[in-house]
Design a protein around this nucleic acid. Structure first.
Lengths: 142, 142
DNA sequence: CATACTATTAGGAATACTTCCTATTTAGGT
DNA sequence: ACCTAAATAGGAAGTATTCCTAATAGTATG
């Protein structure tokens, strides 16, 4: 997990500017494992910086994605963001929307095998499982 | 791969009606491995049934998804559909949008392991790899 | 085969997330 | 402190999908 300071320096040397908005967004993403949506990030950041705009949140997330500092997954037509960028499986609860990460070593190997078979040059992967999380599951069993 | 007739009977016994629109959509999905978008399906179907509406295409796809006869994946904020419903990996070309399927036996096992670890009740899975397909790849290597 | 019932449809309006636009502000080098 | 380009706020525009409703058409029944 990258620290804010390292990250800031890395952005700065690439000619990007360190703004309070960017810091707030990165800080929030680093300390949560909630996989928030852009709107939720916006709501949270606004408590500290009431003037921050949603478009800035989107732009910052774009930048962070490009720098491979955040991962984006699409759930129900909505993008959700996460600072966990290692290869992992996202478990998505179709009832409450909660997303949990699970590390799984074999993914890298599968990816290599698929790349070889298909002759694709792989840039990014996405492994999702949809179902009921443990707490929603119990609501559905009588 | 299910045949149209079996499928029609299965729908009929569940109280669903067999309409020309539904047949056209299923027929198209069964014979292509293109992973078309709703709009593309609509365009293709319209050649045969000029009056078919896009909303009917969406509704039919919903029905087919529910019946587990088609699979949906999301690419660039657009849904793409596929009659290949076994567990498999989708290779998505980020340049031309082509999607290729690869069977991979170990997915089922990974899924079981993740379900056990997380206590989720898994309903559906989605494995995607993004990159350049073999023909786009060559455009990017000098 | 005609009838009745109700699922389905066409078409367009409404919705929701994301991207785009532009005047203004501000980070960071000098 | 000043300058310049990068970034921002705010809202408008774009786009895929869902929703709404009157009209249509499968299908079961007699």
């Amino acid at each position: 997990m990258l620290q804010i300071e390292e990250l800031a320096n890395s952005l700065r040397t690439d000619g990007f500017r360190i703004t309070p908005q960017r810091i707030a967004i990165v800080e929030y993403l680093l300390k949560t494992d909630d996989h928030p949506s852009a709107e939720r990030i916006h709501r949270v950041i606004q408590k500290k910086y009431p003037m921050v705009s949603l478009s800035t949140v989107y732009k910052t997330l774009d930048l962070l994605k490009e720098k491979k500092l955040v991962n984006e997954i699409e759930v129900d037509g909505e993008a959700r963001f996460d600072a966990h960028t290692d290869e992992h499986i996202n478990l998505v609860c179709v009832n409450c929307g909660k997303i949990e990460d699970i590390d799984e070593d074999s993914l890298r190997e599968i990816q290599t095998r698929a790349a070889r078979k298909s002759k694709y040059m792989i840039l990014k992967s996405n492994f999702e499982l949809f179902g009921y999380c443990s707490s929603c599951k119990s609501k559905f069993t009588v």
